[in-house]
């Protein structure tokens, strides 16, 4: 019973502790991921098991000539940019407001979280009924206010469907930015503002020279996280329009889902998912490199 066994003990314990978490991660994340990659090189239509087989890059070739892939890609881009920009701006404004002292601030801070904690399914159904072109609340209000004469079928027109869903998602996700940025704001030492004031900085200068630089790490992380989440999210689109009208709200995850579970074409669906992952990884890698760079400055 000497040093070596004690040393061995110490060496094994961390592995033992990590094993359960690792085993679960491998089982439910890495194995399916690996399987998806394999599928993407295969012809795999669920109801034609006898035709299943390796077909190399055939699926990828199909994707690059598939007009629906191109339009879904553009939609994904509009989807991400539209949502992130507005969620961020709205969240930031809310954070700044909540950072001021006013009566009832505590309650306001809790209330602001409601959209974020509401399950997506409920959010989607709620907005779907609010947008309804025959009995919907939004139409009722607009018409009572005299802004419209005829009800607008928000989710039934190709011109308004995407925008309408984006608005619902902005509503759902802006509290995340608000809360994260608020936490960031409160971590900025008061002295910095005092010093800036003594140096004669205006409010606007203080905002751009103190607030923004101090918040930069929070901003970069939250934007990165939300970009990944929003890019992957499909539940709200599926419930509100199911990708329609036509293909006007098909984003890549929606297309991939419909190909797999409505068309039962797991091969091509996996290819779409892999392409989305690659695109996201390129964006994220570039982004992370930028963060690291800016932190070195």
């Amino acid at each position: 019973m000497g040093q070596p066994s004690l040393r061995k003990k110490r060496d094994l314990l961390p592995y033992a502790l990590v094993t359960p978490a690792l085993a679960i991660t491998i089982a439910i994340i890495f194995l399916p991921m690996f399987q998806t990659i394999t599928y993407s090189f295969s012809h795999y239509v669920l109801y034609k098991p006898q035709e299943k087989g390796f077909i190399g890059l055939e699926n990828f070739k199909t994707a690059f000539t598939d007009p629906l892939f191109a339009s879904s890609l553009i939609n994904t881009f509009i989807w991400i940019v539209g949502i992130i920009v507005f969620q961020f701006l709205l969240g930031f404004a809310t954070a700044l407001l909540l950072n001021r002292k006013f009566p009832g601030r505590g309650i306001a801070r809790s209330l602001i979280l409601i959209p974020w904690v509401t399950p997506s399914v409920i959010t989607a159904l709620m907005w779907r009924w609010m947008y309804d072109g025959n009995h919907g609340l939004i139409n009722q209000l607009l018409s009572k206010a005299g802004l419209i004469k005829e009800f607008i079928p928000f989710l039934a027109q190709t011109s308004t469907a995407m925008g309408s869903i984006i608005v619902a998602l902005i509503w759902q996700g802006f509290p995340f930015f608000a809360i994260m940025l608020l936490a960031g704001l409160q971590a900025i030492p008061e002295e910095l503002y005092e010093a800036a004031e003594i140096d004669g900085a205006t409010r606007i200068q203080q905002f751009f020279r103190v607030t923004i630089p101090m918040l930069k790490p929070v901003i970069l992380t939250t934007v990165l996280l939300r970009t990944i989440w929003v890019a992957n999210s499909l539940d709200i689109i599926l419930i509100m329009t199911g990708g329609g009208p036509g293909y006007s709200t098909y984003t890549l995850p929606v297309y991939s889902y419909i190909k797999a579970y409505k068309g039962m074409d797991f091969g091509y669906s996996a290819t779409l998912a892999v392409l989305l992952t690659i695109l996201l990884m390129i964006i994220v890698a570039g982004y992370v490199r930028n963060i690291l760079k800016s932190q070195e400055d």
Binding site: G133, P153, L155, G246
Partner: peptide, 21 residues
């Protein structure tokens, strides 16, 4: 047919009959 036709599913079609739309 109502302007909402492209997005009308079963629920909407029946709701429109019930409401007289």
């Amino acid at each position: 047919s109502p302007p909402t036709t492209p997005s009308d599913g079963f629920v909407e079609v029946i709701a429109n009959m019930k409401s007289g739309k």
